Simulated scan of single mutants.
Amino acid sequence: MPLRGLPEHRRRHPRGGRLMTRTGIEYLRAKDQDSAVALVAEDPDAAFLAGGTTELDLALKDRVVHPSRFVDIGRLPLRGVTRDGDRLRVAALTTMEELAADPTVRARLPLVREALLLGASTQLRNMATIGGNLLQRTRCRYFRDPDVAACNKREPGSGCAAIEGVARMHAILGAGPSCIALHASDLCVPLVALDAVVELLDADGPRRVPLTDFYLTPGDRPDVETVLRHGELLTHVEIPLLPAGTRSAYIKVRDRTSYEFGLTTAGAAVQVDDGTITMARVGLGGVGTVPWRSWEAERVLVGSPANERTFAAAAQAAIRDPFTVPGTEFKVELAKRTIVRILRTVTS
């Protein structure tokens, strides 16, 4: 029973059927969803393990999180994409590559497919799960370096080293003096724009949360990133399909065209009727502490002509009151240009 990414030398746990890894982390394989939820809920330091592309890095490589127990959900029947009318229901263990290859995603959700393909290398896309992507932690170098003491995400009240450090890859929207860590997911950008909903399960039963309400901006508690409760399992993501005739796309601006995190990204979906924008969805990445839905840009766009003046006004509205530090000021103008570019793309 190999534990992916963990040292292979391990001893059997005295309670039987469980393994204690050489790192001291208990490993259990869940038989079903209810047992997975119970095994995590009973231990305040337990964590779910799926593809492991983020969780294993944080625990074993960076050593900035310290789970006492991994509950492996990798064999649960939470994989696949099904269509229900005008919506897709994506099980959490579906890989990024599987979702990108889905025929309905190809035909009706180009912005989702493009975000998936630009979000990771082929090797990672074949391992990384959709649920894991939505729950990935920030790539902030200060958060991921345990030798940096000042990180409010790791140690509430300790400060934010990024404020006075190198901050090129940090956020300008939803940020503040307590934290400027960036949410790194590409996929989440189009999903918030599309009003996706996550389905969660714990001992009290299932619940549904709009993705726009799922993530929390830092405020005074940067360590609390989502509304997810301990022991609650993300089981599915529901994605509304775009109406026929909608144009959509995803753009990622980065330092190099090979696999790299974005400086600014944008996903947009637009309908145009006789030169007037009748529907608009805009999501931004590379700039927010959470996946950023730009309601302000959408309000400017709907009912306006599809021209450069409208695009510039939407960009101006989207990047309002940014919180910048030395190193992130350039993102204000770059984000505006990225918005104009994506709007040109989907209306041309």
Results as ranks from 00 to 15, higher is better:
Arg299Ile: 00
Leu58Arg: 06
Thr82Arg: 15
Val270Gln: 03
Asp43Met: 04
Asp102Tyr: 02
Val112Asp: 06
Gly165Ala: 10
Ala91Ser: 14
Leu216Cys: 06
Leu228Arg: 15
Thr94His: 10
Leu242Asn: 12
Leu194Ile: 00
Ser158Cys: 10
Ala313Ser: 09
Lys252Trp: 14
Val287Trp: 09
Glu55Thr: 15
Asp274Leu: 07
Val65Gly: 08
Arg108Asn: 02
Ile277Gln: 02
Thr246Met: 12
Pro190Ser: 01
Ala184His: 07
Arg256Asp: 05
Thr265Val: 06
Thr95Tyr: 06
His66Asn: 13
Leu116Glu: 05
Arg12Asp: 01
Glu238Leu: 09
Ala266Asn: 06
Asp102Ser: 03
Glu155Pro: 08
Ser178Asp: 05
Val40Glu: 10
Thr324Lys: 11
Pro326Glu: 12
Leu284Ile: 06
Pro206Asn: 00
Pro67Trp: 00
Asp186Gly: 06
Ala101Leu: 14
Gly174Gln: 12
Asn152Gln: 11
Arg208Phe: 04
Val325Trp: 11
Leu116Trp: 04
Leu118Met: 12
Thr246Tyr: 13
His13Glu: 03
Leu211Cys: 00
Leu6Lys: 05
Pro326Val: 12
Gly5Asn: 09
Asp86Asn: 12
Ile25Phe: 10
Asp145Gln: 05
Val65Met: 07
Val340Tyr: 13
Ala107Trp: 09
Ile73Phe: 07
Leu19Met: 13
Ala30Arg: 13
Asn126Ser: 12
Gln33His: 14
Val332Leu: 04
Gly165Asn: 10
Gly262Asp: 03
Thr264Met: 14
Pro218Phe: 01
Gly24Lys: 14
Leu28Met: 13
Met279Arg: 15
Gln123Leu: 07
Arg15Ile: 14
Tyr142Ser: 03
Ala315Phe: 09
Ala196Lys: 00
Ile277Asp: 01
Arg18Trp: 13
Asp213Thr: 04
Glu97Ala: 15
Ile180Val: 03
Leu93Pro: 14
Phe261Leu: 11
Asp147Phe: 15
Leu117Thr: 09
Gly24Phe: 14
Phe323Leu: 08
Glu114Val: 02
His236Lys: 05
Val105Pro: 00
Asp102His: 13
Gly231Gln: 07
Thr347Asp: 07
Val189Ser: 02
Val224Lys: 10
